[in-house]
Computed example of a mutant assay.
Amino acid sequence: MTHIFAHRGSAGTHPENTMISFMEAARVEADGIELDVQLSRDGVVVVIHDETVNRTTDGTGWVGQMTYRQLRKLNANYKFKKYGFCPIPSLQEVFEWAKNTSLLINIELKNNLIPYERLEEKVIELVERYDLASRVIFSSFNHESMATCHQLAPHIETALLYMEKLHRPWSYAHTLQALALHPYHPTVDRAFVELAHANDLLVRPFTINKEALMKTMFQYGVDGIFTDFPEKAQNVREKTLRSL
């Protein structure tokens, strides 16, 4: 069955990458959550997508130039004002909550623009501390980082994020010992999914928000989708499975 990952939490209805968004994903019974991690100036692993706080908070500036204490003062509710104050979570805070759920956790390392020193080590240390290795997937557009993660923690799944079509991506993934491909959805068709599966790779396209596209991906038999609307995806998956 195709897993439904709530992209940055239930980001279509709640402030992305906040605890309230992750809790909503759990409430609607998504199979997993997806979140993005960076490092604060004082080395705390924080959950935020952009390299600056400008878009998703009431502040301005670079994440990596602000301390965790400074980041926590910002309100990350940006376009969902009705939810009140929503701080930027630390990865530890998310894990403290998630350890009591059964959610899969896709952690995207946001180090393709800024090479945060020791981000991989710090994230892996937290995963091990909370005994979540069997439920965690690492992904990144920085494929060197995924190779590093595999070298440091070969028992944790790694996945390659990419936007454009790749020639024989399964061969490339095998050289990095990645177990999954996370492609931009326009690059995915049924033949691609079948070839990836034949080469022992999982396929989880992003970001699938329209009902028709959800249905298509479920029919292709992808292993997971990332969506801002996990509750809608649950309903579409149920209807699609009944029709198969």
Results as ranks from 00 to 15, higher is better:
Trp170Ile: 04
Thr158Ile: 06
Ile33Leu: 01
Gln234Arg: 15
Arg204His: 12
Val136Leu: 02
Ala11Gly: 04
Glu194Ser: 15
Ile225Asp: 03
Gln65Met: 13
Gln70Lys: 10
Tyr68Asn: 14
Ile20Asp: 10
Val63Tyr: 07
Arg204Gln: 07
Lys99Tyr: 09
Leu74Thr: 07
Ala212Pro: 05
Glu211Thr: 15
Leu244Ile: 11
Leu161Phe: 08
Asn235Leu: 14
Tyr184Ala: 06
Gln38Ala: 08
Pro115Trp: 08
Leu39Thr: 03
Asn199Pro: 10
Asn111Val: 04
Leu35His: 01
Thr216Asn: 13
Ser102Trp: 11
Leu103Ile: 04
Leu104Met: 12
Thr148Gly: 07
Ile4Val: 05
Met23Gln: 14
Ile33Gln: 00
Trp62Ile: 14
Tyr172Trp: 13
Leu113Phe: 15
Asn235Cys: 12
Ala133Asn: 11
Leu103Val: 06
Leu109Asn: 02
Asp58Gly: 10
Glu120Tyr: 01
Glu93Ser: 10
Ala26His: 14
Arg204Ala: 09
Glu125Phe: 12
Asp228Ile: 06
Lys110Ser: 04
Glu108Trp: 02
Ile105Pro: 03
Pro169Ile: 10
Glu125Gln: 15
Glu231Gly: 01
Asn17Phe: 02
Ala191Cys: 12
Leu109Lys: 04
Phe226Asp: 00
His14Gln: 10
Asp189Thr: 13
Ala98Asp: 05
Ala212Asp: 13
His197Pro: 11
Arg204Gly: 10
Asp36Gly: 05
Asn199Lys: 12
Ile137Gly: 00
Glu144Leu: 13
Tyr68Val: 11
Glu125Trp: 12
Leu241Asn: 11
Val236Trp: 00
Lys232Ala: 11
Ala6Ser: 04
Ala233Val: 08
Thr240Cys: 09
Phe80Val: 02
Lys215Trp: 08
His155Gly: 08
Leu71Gln: 09
Arg8Trp: 04
Arg118Phe: 10
Glu125Arg: 15
Glu29Gly: 05
Ile225Trp: 05
Ser90Asn: 03
Ser139Glu: 02
Arg8His: 04
Lys215Ser: 13
Leu152Cys: 09
Thr158Ala: 06
Arg135Gln: 05
Ser40Glu: 06
Asn112Gly: 14
Ala233Ile: 11
Arg190Met: 14
Ala26Tyr: 14
Phe141Leu: 09
Leu160Trp: 00
Thr2Asn: 09
Ser21Cys: 03
His7Val: 03
Met23His: 08
Phe85Met: 05
His150Tyr: 11
Asp50Ile: 09
Thr60Ala: 13
Thr18Ala: 08
Ala159Ile: 02
Pro154Asn: 08
Arg190Gly: 13
Asn235Ala: 14
Asn54Phe: 10
His155Leu: 01
Ser171His: 15
Leu152Gln: 12
Leu244Pro: 01
Val123Phe: 02
Asn199Leu: 10
Ser90Gln: 02
Gln38Met: 09
Glu164Ser: 12
Gln70Phe: 07
Ser40Met: 07
Trp62Met: 15
Thr175Phe: 08
Pro15Phe: 07
Leu213Pro: 00
Thr18Cys: 05
Gly84Val: 04
Lys110Pro: 06
Tyr78His: 14
Val46Asp: 02
Glu29Tyr: 12
Val45Glu: 03
Ala196Thr: 08
Gly12Arg: 00
Val127Ile: 15
Tyr116Asp: 05
Glu117Arg: 15
Val222Gln: 04
Phe218Cys: 04
Asp200His: 15
Ile20Cys: 09
Arg8Tyr: 04
Phe80Tyr: 12
Glu117Val: 14
Ala196Tyr: 01
Leu201Tyr: 05
Val203Asn: 02
